[in-house]
Amino acid sequence: MEFPEGLKYSKEHEWVLVEDRVAIIGITEYAQQELGDIVYVELPEVGEKIVKDDAFGAVESVKAVSDIYAPVSGTVVEVNDTLPDSPETINDDPYGDGWMIKVEMSDRDDLKDLISAEEYAEYVEQQKGEGDEEEGGEEEE
């Protein structure tokens, strides 16, 4: 599984690419794999304010809906308009064409809470271990 160096990661499985005051945000390879086939994306509009650790959108696979949490606070300056029509791009290219929003950060200190590629890779390994023991599933059939 690929976690590019140079990106910052959140424990909610978002990645952030920082360019000056702008943060480009998407979800990680691990997140898209866990979700499976993504069939719907809900994103904010340009000009909306997002708040660190609050949900700013949602991705839905055929199986379930998952919130996407803001890794930083700020104002949305650009949204990836191709995603609503081809949400599978997030599965195919989560770090490239599957980017979601660009945000002008209101506080660069938010970045301090994010982790490096290496730390994130370790975190994912832990998650996988826990996931194996998980007792989930309410489906009855």
């Binding site: 499976g36 086939d37 055929v62 199986k63 194996d132 998980e134 007792e135 989930g136 599933g137 489906e139």
Partner: peptide, 19 residues
């Protein structure tokens, strides 16, 4: 794999849509 009613069940192999 997910736990369900005491069973370990495969949710998907190659992807829900493909299957």
């Amino acid at each position: 794999m997910v736990g369900f009613a005491g069973w370990e069940m495969p949710v998907q192999y190659r992807g829900v849509i493909e299957e």
